[in-house]
Amino acid sequence: MERRKATGEMSAAELADVVERVRAGDGDAWGEIYRLYAPAIFRFCRRALPTREDAEDATTDVFMKVKQKLGTYDSSRPFQAWLYKVASNHCWDMLRRRRIRQDLETGDLETLPLEHPDPSALEKMQFDHDSKQVRAGLAKMPDRARMVLVLRYYSDMSYDEIADTLGVRRAFVGVLLLRARHQLREILGEGGGASMLGATAGGKP
């Protein structure tokens, strides 16, 4: 699984050594870990959570947890993957605790449109909106929709990992992803998202 690159990333062996030193109580080693990954975790949290303040809080919390749970870390797994797992779990729990999840898991495919989106309309939407607008659109999305897009397209998490983080069945991850894409199109299209659909009739295979 490919992850975001942390600034000044060290080799796997070096990282393993630093992690071991942290486990042994080396404060300097913890400083190295923090300096290396705090910016990356903040960027992840910034995308997963609706406000910058939330992201700052979450970053601090994530590292508190990492420090507490480092003893349970399985060093045979990539440290970065584990770190992002802690971060994504924390962000999702944070949102869930606040009870601001607007959407509920249903596993229901009927809410998805059956028509193909119009490829040219999709292309136009991508052409018309820069990254900043997309990020602004993400901030307006329901929490789970935003979260699933970030986990998949920013953190490159597998469907299994996403399912584990969000507490849904693996088969439902694809539905969440597609629904999230539709919601983002709707937001960016300012209600005109329907124009991207139905231009091409489609059916179930």
Binding site: L112, R181, G203, K204, P205
Partner: peptide, 10 residues
Amino acid sequence: THFDEMTALL
């Protein structure tokens, strides 16, 4: 029969 968007994404 065309395939749907879900199938295309998966």
